[in-house]
Amino acid sequence: MRIGYARVSTQDQHLDLQEDALAKAGCEKVFQDFMSGARADRPGLIDALSHLREGDVLVVWKLDRLGRSVKGLVDLVEELANRKVHFQSITDQIDTSTVAGRFFFNVMASMAQMERELIGERTKAGLEVARKLGRVGGRKRKMSDGKIESAKKLLATGMPPKDVSKNLGISVPTLYRWLPASRRV
């Protein structure tokens, strides 16, 4: 039996391309996840693995859909081999039922890991340059210095925190985060 596994990182992404390719590859069942490949607790993958029997083939559209680290991929394919289950990646043209396929899998897994690490390094370098240029990442602050001063004055007049937060267009927890009871004077 050929069992497919499809994954995207977020709910707003679509699995159509992967599911079509898995159907064309002859998968009788396809399991799916909508979460990061870095997570070990992917219910769709766990379910797919539990359905695999000796002689079956786990099929993915692309190698990175299965996992994020070389070690994780190699360990998973090794676990499948121990269970006498084969692995196939359609796009990467990997089929572990052959010697060449097993070799190619190890090479591709190493290259995928290197690519992820290079992306991480470039991202870190870009963030460092941005910080040096005075840019700060993340969401804009809800509480400006003016809002903090206004909140202090309104609280000093005895206005309830709920009304202060409504007046400033912020949530009560945001108000408390910026003006804990110990700092309000």
Rank of each mutant, 00 (worst) to 15 (best):
F105D: 01
G126V: 07
V8S: 08
S150W: 03
L154D: 02
R184A: 08
K29V: 08
M35N: 07
S144F: 06
D47K: 15
G101H: 10
D41R: 11
L154R: 09
E128D: 12
G4C: 07
R53G: 10
V74E: 04
Y5L: 03
I94P: 01
L63C: 07
N82Y: 08
A6R: 05
R7Y: 14
F34T: 14
R141V: 12
K84D: 12
T174L: 12
Q11S: 12
L154T: 05
N82P: 00
Q11N: 11
L168E: 07
R42M: 12
R2V: 01
D145P: 03
V85S: 05
P43C: 15
F105V: 02
L80Y: 09
L15H: 14
G169I: 01
A48W: 12
Q88A: 09
Y176D: 11
D20W: 02
A109R: 05
K166E: 14
G72E: 08
V60S: 02
F34W: 14
R2M: 03
N167V: 00
V136L: 10
R65G: 02
V30T: 15
R7P: 04
F87G: 06
G37P: 05
G158L: 05
V99G: 07
D95V: 05
W61C: 08
R102T: 10
R2Q: 14
G67A: 04
Q93R: 13
T98G: 01
C27S: 04
V70K: 14
F87Q: 11
E54S: 13
K166N: 09
R177F: 10
L179S: 07
S144L: 06
K24A: 14
L76A: 02
A112S: 15
L15N: 07
F104V: 05
V185F: 06
M143D: 13
L133A: 09
G120L: 03
I170P: 04
A38Q: 14
L66E: 04
A100Y: 07
S165W: 12
S165K: 03
V136G: 00
G146S: 13
D75R: 03
F104N: 05
F104T: 10
N106E: 13
